[in-house]
Each structure stands twice: as C-alpha cells, then as structure tokens.
C-alpha cells in the first residue's frame, strides 16, 4: 500500500504507512530512514522514524530559491515521491545486536505477577525470553520503544505517572523500555540496569538506535 504524505506544520513532511505497530511496516520505515541518513534530500535538516511513519524536517529558508512556484511543501513532497519510487531493499539490513543486563527486582514486579496471575519468576522468564526490536525512540532523550512483549505480560499504563529512576526497566502494552533519565512515567518497573542509555558528553549520546535488536540477560550486579 502506498504511504500517505502530509505536512507536519510548515517545515516538515510525514510519510505515513498506516496507524499500526507492525514489524514489516517498521522495516520499511527503517530502510527509508537509513537511506536518508546516507543520502539526505536537498534542504533536509533531519529525519525522525517512528513505528509506522517517517518525518523529514526541512529548511524552508534554504529551499526558497529552488522553488519557483507553488508551496515549498508541494515541491518537497514531489522530491519525496520520486525518492519513494526508487526501490530499496527492505528488511535486508543487518541490525546491531545489543545485550543488556537487568536486575529483576523492580518495585512493580510482584504487582505485575499478581495482576497477570503468574509467579514473579514467570514474569522474568517471559521478559528474558523475548527478542526485541527498537521500533523508535521518543518521549525522553534515548528512550527506546522495544517490542513486542509476550502477550502474557500486557499491562495497561498506570493511571497516574510516578517518579521513575534512570535505569528502570519497565513494561506497558506490548512494549518494554528503559528510562534513560529520572522522569515521571506510567510504565510498570520490573527491573533495573546499570547500562547508561544517555550520555550528553558523547558524540552519539544515546546507546540505542532505531532498528537495534535487544536481548536482556539476568544480572545480580546493579548499583542503583
């Protein structure tokens, strides 16, 4: 199905592949995203991948001299359509594999187990068993939305956000994530990790990138 293009304000365009969390669709988004990282479109400032969409922010002021008539958006959308017409190998990319140690003693572990009617050990086993992909980053610097979680662990978000510590490993819906910073959040914390997900002084400040494949392993050494 052809994606839908629409303006995201007067300085960005979104390419929307449908309102769905799906690996095959996320593969398309990431293939397009990686192509733009290598070959940016004229006037592009940056590209932002999400579950099923890719947004390109462009520089209106730089593009003004290239566009003779009509809106800059319409001109840029034509460039995007041409680019979307070029075939890319989808799902053939190799992604980084990252293993993350987790101490499974989060404050919500028991509560999740009780609500799901399983033992805490089973919660841990199900979380460890998963092979996750980073669909996208958002919410906080370095916060990766990883899926999909075993359906046996699906929990709705908490009604009221609570204060989360950096390194909290949490679940909500069919996703798992790690809070990179101390922040309010509504996910269920089942563990914690020492791994630093965000380091402002680094050239690449965020550990995780869209498309990374994540495995968790159980650890007993957490300083937090």
């Amino acid at each position: 199905m052809a994606p839908v293009l629409f303006p995201l304000g007067d300085s960005a365009i979104t390419i929307d592949y449908g309102n769905i969390i799906d690996e095959a669709i996320n593969d398309k988004v990431l293939a397009r995203f990686h192509d733009l990282q290598k070959h940016p479109l004229p006037g592009m400032i940056e590209a932002i991948p999400a579950y099923s969409s890719l947004t390109i922010v462009y520089d209106l002021f730089k593009l003004r001299s290239l566009v003779k008539q009509g809106s800059i958006y319409a001109w840029f959308a034509e460039q995007v359509k041409d680019w979307l017409g070029q075939d890319l190998a989808i799902g053939k990319e190799t992604f980084r594999s990252i293993r993350i140690p987790v101490c499974y003693d989060g404050p919500d572990l028991i509560s999740v187990a009780e609500q799901k009617g399983i033992s805490p050990e089973e919660v841990i086993r199900l979380h460890l068993e998963g092979r996750y992909r980073v669909y996208m980053l958002g919410f906080l610097p370095g916060f990766a939305y990883m899926g999909k979680l075993s359906p046996k662990l699906f929990m709705p978000r908490k009604k009221q956000p609570e204060n989360m510590l950096a390194g909290s490993v949490a679940i909500a819906g069919d996703q798992t994530g790690i809070y990179p910073l101390n922040s309010p959040g509504g996910w269920w914390v089942i563990g914690r990790t020492d791994v630093q997900l965000f380091d402002a002084s680094s050239y690449e400040p965020c550990l995780l990138r869209p498309g990374d494949r994540i495995e968790f392993y159980s650890s007993t050494q957490c300083s937090l």
């Binding site: 995201l8 304000g9 979104t14 932002i48 579950y51 919410f139």
Partner: peptide
C-alpha cells in the same frame, strides 16, 4: 500510534483541550 511532532503542533488532549507544543516538546 506515536509519530513525530513539531514546534507549533496543536495536539488535542483527551479532555478536549488543545495544547501547542513549544520549544521543549517531546
């Protein structure tokens, strides 16, 4: 499902009130 937003995007919250995303937006 979550996707990118922009400085100036007006989102409609579930209670029906609009919020304009400003410089520190997610």
């Amino acid at each position: 499902v979550s996707s990118a937003v922009n400085f100036g995007t007006i989102q409609l919250l579930p209670d029906g009130s609009p919020i304009v995303l400003m410089a520190d937006h997610q």
